[in-house]
Design a protein around this nucleic acid. Structure first.
Lengths: 248, 248
DNA sequence: TACTTATACTGGTATGACCAATGCATAATA
DNA sequence: TATTATGCATTGGTCATACCAGTATAAGTA
């Protein structure tokens, strides 16, 4: 990873030390002067790094005492929480369905046209300067923006920026998304259709179905995986989610 | 406002200049050296302030060129988006209702007890080291945590941290919350009751009703207000929200 | 033993210096 | 004249050093 600013690099090095257990939560970091010599940089760089980490909620800096490690086990590099693919998809199913329902009665014709464009890009029928995945995100964000509700827009945008915690989970997630691309078209078309009809209830259920099927695919993929951790999360997610499905 | 670190103060001064229109979006800030002498601080303090603002997405710093103001008209001091009370309550109605529905089947007895405690605190029947408002927030966050879904917990927590953009709107919001305190007890009791019965559908509708009533109160209060801006947002919010209500 | 005090830390801030990237005015060129 | 090359002033990035103000702990005192 290339860092433009030196303090980014220093911050990442500090995070590595924390995550590797050298400095567990609650412990005190070495002084800025020590870290500076240890990393071969000036004290300024260490200060800026620690300030950045403090802003991300990973450190608490006490004057005259030191910098203390906060429990950041549930936080990713970007400050957003670490979430597994199951709970992330579950949350999306719930929230994006409501987003679609809210958007349906008030979505503009321009937004509809935009959505049609993204679907074409995802199908690969037209040339575009964005990838299919980027078009996927744009599709969902355009619906969110159509709610005209900034809180909803922020929330859904945040969920797109969250990343899964573990590498193997992320790989499972990615492979599912790839295999999913065929279904994706139909499901997006169904969502768009409901929006065209300005039908909130259908838009909601179509969006739910979209994510529900993604969860099902995730469950299949995770059961094929060799990791117990993945299987445990799968069963957790399934027991909750199946119940919710029955309610709609 | 008391700032612990100097760069906080400097960052706020820079933000004031931006918000007051001295440096509009897209414009270039004076050099770090100029700002340092202007504010009567060292260049280090200015640098740290600009780094913090960059992390908040308010500035873009280009080496050799300068610091450029990004459009932050929709962002509050804490980095979260500025949202009006209507859209915020609307988003809460949607998302927290789903949160309650998801939590209902799996909420623990311990969490139920905790919720009962918060209700007692809000009613003023018991002494506590937290205020009624803090108990209110704790009530909702406990439900969110009961979903066991970190994405949902993060989202609902974020919405509690959002603040309304304009002072007059905030006052309207606050006064409504105060007048609402009597209803609040009953509504919270209804939510708790549904959770006790592990009934997702009822929990969802009870939570919706809770926020729906708050929106109604907001609309009444805003129509009494003298500001056209408030009235406009009220009508916007009502036209959307009434429709959504019919769907559940 | 209990309390005060001295001292060696810590982070916070300031200053001045130098480097590399940038951008613009100027000069050299086609 | 239009275009390109060049030089220099400005900007952010980094460093070394110094000093200040809290903090914590060991030494000293009652």
């Amino acid at each position: 990873m290339v860092e433009k600013r030196l303090y980014h690099s220093v911050a990442n090095q500090i995070l590595e030390l924390i995550d590797s257990g050298v400095f567990p939560a609650g412990s005190r970091l070495p002084g800025e002067r020590d870290l500076a010599t240890k990393f071969g940089v000036s004290r300024v760089a260490v200060r800026e790094a620690e300030i950045a980490l403090q802003a991300q909620g990973r450190l608490e800096i006490k004057v005259g005492s030191g910098a203390y490690v906060l429990d950041g086990s549930n936080k990713a590099l970007n400050g957003l929480p670490k979430v597994g693919p199951f709970e992330l998809t579950e949350a999306r199913a719930l929230f994006e369905a409501e987003s679609a329902a809210l958007a349906a009665p008030i979505i503009t014709d321009e937004a509809i046209k935009e959505l049609e464009g993204y679907i074409e890009i995802m199908s690969g029928k037209v040339e575009a300067d964005i990838t299919a995945d980027e078009a996927d995100e744009a599709f969902h964000m355009t619906i969110a923006r159509s709610t005209n509700n900034h809180a909803i827009i922020f929330v859904i945008d945040s969920m797109w920026k969250m990343r899964t915690e573990a590498a193997q989970l992320q790989n499972v997630y990615k492979s599912v998304c790839d295999k999913d691309s065929s279904h994706r078209e139909d499901e997006h078309a169904a969502i768009l259709d409901a929006l065209k009809n300005r039908d909130p209830a259908t838009a909601r259920s179509a969006m739910r179905a979209h994510f529900n099927r993604m969860i099902e695919a995730l469950l299949v993929a995770s059961e094929e995986a060799a990791y117990e951790e993945v299987k445990r999360k799968a069963s957790e997610s399934r027991s909750r989610f199946t119940l919710t499905q029955q309610l709609h």
